[in-house]
Computed example of a mutant assay.
Amino acid sequence: MNETTQLTLVRQKFYRRERRSVPAARAFVRWALEDWRMGPLIEPVLLCVSELATNALRHGVPPGREFDVRVLAGGGLLRIEVHDSGGGRVEAARPDGELEYGRGLLLVGALADRWGVGDREIGKVVWCEFAWPGADQARGS
């Protein structure tokens, strides 16, 4: 995301460190995309949400803490962010299959236009972006 991109539509929700949070995060993101009339993006975005939320739950959220899912849109872009308070590195598996983890991030990389990891004061944010020219005309309710 470049500095001039205006992500004017924002939805955010926190989830507990429990298994049912992953389907709840998917439902939350589906609701936002439907409300913003971004239906064609729903399936690939929900697959990415599943991967990012599962990774946060399994590797990034210490006991007793939560993770945060944010959906942002504008400037022809849809961005999904999953914030957690855990440490650790985020690394996608290599196509040669050397790593025993990170295969979900290969999927995210294949579906999203871009993805990455950023630092937070405590923890990290893993994000993915999708080009969506209609983001500027989406409803801002």
Rank of each mutant, 00 (worst) to 15 (best):
T8K: 15
E51H: 03
A93W: 06
A32S: 12
T54S: 12
R65C: 13
L57W: 09
A92H: 05
G74D: 02
I80S: 11
I42S: 02
V117I: 12
R114F: 11
G76D: 03
G104R: 02
L72W: 01
R89H: 13
R114A: 15
G87W: 06
R120G: 00
R70Y: 00
R58H: 12
R58N: 07
R20D: 14
V69W: 07
G76K: 00
P63V: 05
E18C: 13
E129N: 03
G86R: 05
N55W: 12
W31A: 06
V22D: 08
Y15G: 11
N2A: 10
R139Q: 06
L46S: 09
L7D: 03
D119A: 15
L52S: 00
L111S: 12
E66G: 01
G118C: 02
A138K: 03
K124C: 07
A73G: 04
Y15L: 14
A112M: 15
Y15T: 12
E81L: 06
E43W: 02
R19C: 05
D35A: 15
R37A: 15
G140F: 00
W31F: 02
G60V: 06
W31G: 03
H83R: 15
A73Y: 02
L99K: 11
F14Y: 12
L7S: 05
L47Q: 11
L46T: 07
F28L: 02
H83K: 13
A73E: 01
G116R: 04
G86D: 08
R94E: 10
L99Y: 10
W36D: 01
A138D: 05
P44R: 14
F28C: 01
C48L: 07
D35Y: 08
G75K: 02
G86I: 08
A56P: 03
E121D: 13
K13F: 03
K124H: 11
G109L: 13
W36G: 06
R89A: 15
A53Q: 10
R70M: 08
S50G: 15
V71E: 03
F130H: 07
L46N: 07
R114E: 14
G74Q: 03
R30I: 00
L57F: 15
R20G: 10
D68L: 12
V82Q: 04
L46H: 08
S21K: 01
R11M: 10
V29C: 02
A73V: 04
A110T: 10
V82I: 12
H59R: 03
R89D: 15
A25N: 06
L47G: 07
S85K: 03
N2G: 09
A135P: 07
V108Q: 01
V82E: 05
G76Y: 00
D35H: 12
L105R: 01
G60F: 06
E91G: 05
R17D: 13
F130L: 10
V117T: 14
S141Y: 09
F28M: 04
Y101W: 11
G88V: 10
E3H: 13
V126K: 00
A92P: 06
D136T: 07
S85E: 13
G140S: 04
G74F: 07
R20M: 11
E91V: 13
L9G: 13
I42H: 01
W31C: 00
G87M: 09
V82D: 04
V22R: 08
D119W: 10
A112C: 15
V10H: 14
Y101R: 06
P62F: 03
